[in-house]
């Protein structure tokens, strides 16, 4: 391995640690709520907002104009509101259906908006799909501050958020305003996902969110141990993925995604070894 690459991997590695930190936690909620694809959907809604904002002449078609960011954030909040409303109104319709529909419609609407845009679609793709290899320290620091704030917010109200995610019926019985807290959850979640996707791209963010949480569920039931396993797995996979990426000179984001898959499979196979302290028999 060529060690001279290490200084250039410091910022991407720091970014992967923050991603692990916030997403492994949010992932527990997302998996408990069974809204697996909510991040893809919210990211797509944010991208739609960004595309529409770029059509506004005042922003001059510049994807990095501050106005574009605020418009896409506003779209994310509208999406969050939709998800929190639908859940409480019609229990027969699975929320994943609404999430899927939002994803499809937001993607298609972005294509329609793009067909009216004068700027190249490359700009849009650049905005949608970040590259973790090219992340700057400035971005890392900004994101750390942002995620720190969201994390603190969730820590303060952790009992309420967890209660709604794990036992919704009890939360309702206790008179918690589920709809309001759902909105806060999806809004803060959308806030995080929009920034993460700009750094690391949709695929990688999805993995940081879902895989550690699922891997942890193989080994633990309680929230505490699950978080510990999730964070450990996220960190180990980030290190391994970056190592493979350098060693075999592969695109970094995609390598980390595949490493996530690989480590999850290994953990699933290793699970019987931990059960009742004896080796599993084949079959």
């Amino acid at each position: 391995m060529d060690l001279s690459i290490l200084p250039f991997l410091a910022a991407p590695f720091a970014a992967s640690l923050i991603l692990t930190g916030i997403h492994a936690y949010l992932g527990v909620h997302v998996v408990e709520r069974g809204v697996i694809f909510v991040d893809l959907s919210l990211a797509q809604i944010a991208a739609l907002g960004g595309t529409i904002a770029m059509l506004v002449p005042a922003f001059g078609g510049d994807p990095h104009a501050p106005g574009v960011y605020w418009v896409s954030l506003a779209f994310t909040f509208v999406g969050a509101a939709v998800f929190s409303l639908v859940h409480s109104q019609e229990a027969r319709i699975p929320q994943e259906a609404i999430i899927g529909i939002s994803y499809a419609v937001a993607s298609a609407a972005a294509i329609l908006a793009m067909s009216h845009s004068t700027s190249q679609s490359e700009h849009l793709k650049e905005m949608l799909v970040g590259n973790i290899l090219a992340v700057s320290w400035e971005q890392v620091l900004k994101t750390t501050a942002l995620y720190g704030a969201v994390g603190a917010f969730h820590f303060v109200f952790r009992h309420r958020f967890l209660l709604i995610s794990i036992d919704r019926a009890r939360a309702v019985a206790e008179g918690v305003s589920v709809r309001f807290w759902d909105f806060l959850f999806y809004a803060s979640f959308g806030f995080v996902v929009t920034s993460s996707v700009a750094i690391a791209g949709v695929l990688l963010v999805f993995c940081y969110l879902i895989v550690p949480s699922v891997a942890a569920m193989l080994y633990a039931d309680r929230i505490g141990p699950r978080l510990a396993i999730g964070w450990t797995m996220g960190t180990v996979v980030s290190v391994l993925g970056m190592f493979f990426s350098v060693q075999f000179d592969l695109p970094t984001g995609a390598t980390i995604v595949c490493t996530f898959g690989l480590v999850l499979i290994l953990m699933a196979f290793a699970k019987p070894l931990f059960r009742r302290g004896r080796l599993a028999r084949p079959g």
Binding site: D2, S4, F8, E122, K125, L133, S245, V246, L250, P251
Partner: peptide
Amino acid sequence: PKPSFILKLVGADLLVVVGRELEIG
């Protein structure tokens, strides 16, 4: 982009680009 791209840029004496926003992404 791959990690080796950065190393190639680190050691380069000269970078030649097409320009006209082709590589902007």
